[in-house]
């Protein structure tokens, strides 16, 4: 695409990234959360693809799927944390540790919820991003 789009993309990418991170980080306080922030981050990947071409991101494809694996694993492991009581038991909520804040509205409250937000956020970002990337990469050279 033209130089205008590329430059604006350069400027927008960090802003969109930090905004996505904000949406994930404040998922338990304001609208947002893992899915939404992950979708914002994934559209950053889509933006990069459309502005700079998919070939430039080909090398990142394996790392994206790895991030997705890690996010999914992290989510399951977080769910396993509560298995002393039950699977998915929110063992950290209100427990006064890190993420165990007792006051609703604090950044450090919610037990496993913010952590799961991050897990799902990374997962959704990598997942949707790699779907778009795979679609863009398919067919590559010999296709028109």
């Amino acid at each position: 695409m033209s130089v205008v789009v590329r430059t604006v993309t350069r400027l927008l990418v960090p802003l969109a990234l930090i905004f996505g991170a904000y949406v994930i980080m404040h998922g338990h306080l304001t609208p947002g959360g893992g899915f939404q922030g992950g979708a914002v981050l994934a559209s950053v990947v889509a933006l990069l693809i459309v502005a700079f071409g998919a070939e430039r991101l080909r090398r990142r494809q394996t790392s994206l799927t790895s991030v997705e694996d890690l996010g999914a694993l992290m989510f399951v492991v977080l769910a396993f944390v509560g298995i002393g009581s039950t699977f998915f038991y929110n063992a950290l909520a209100g427990a006064r540790g890190l993420f165990g804040g007792t006051e609703a509205g604090s950044l450090w409250a919610g037990g496993t919820v913010p952590l799961m937000n991050w897990a799902v956020g990374l997962k959704v970002m990598a997942g949707l991003g790699s779907i778009v990337l795979l679609m863009a990469l398919f067919g590559g050279d010999d296709d028109r």
């Binding site: 899915f35 959704v124 997942g127 779907i131 679609m135 398919f138 067919g139």
Partner: peptide, 23 residues
């Protein structure tokens, strides 16, 4: 929320099949 993400996933898979069939 759950349904939206599921829908996106299925749509993506469907379109992947479309592309392959066209190929």
């Amino acid at each position: 929320l759950t349904a939206i993400v599921i829908g996106m996933a299925t749509t993506a898979l469907l379109l992947a099949f479309v592309v392959v069939i066209y190929r």
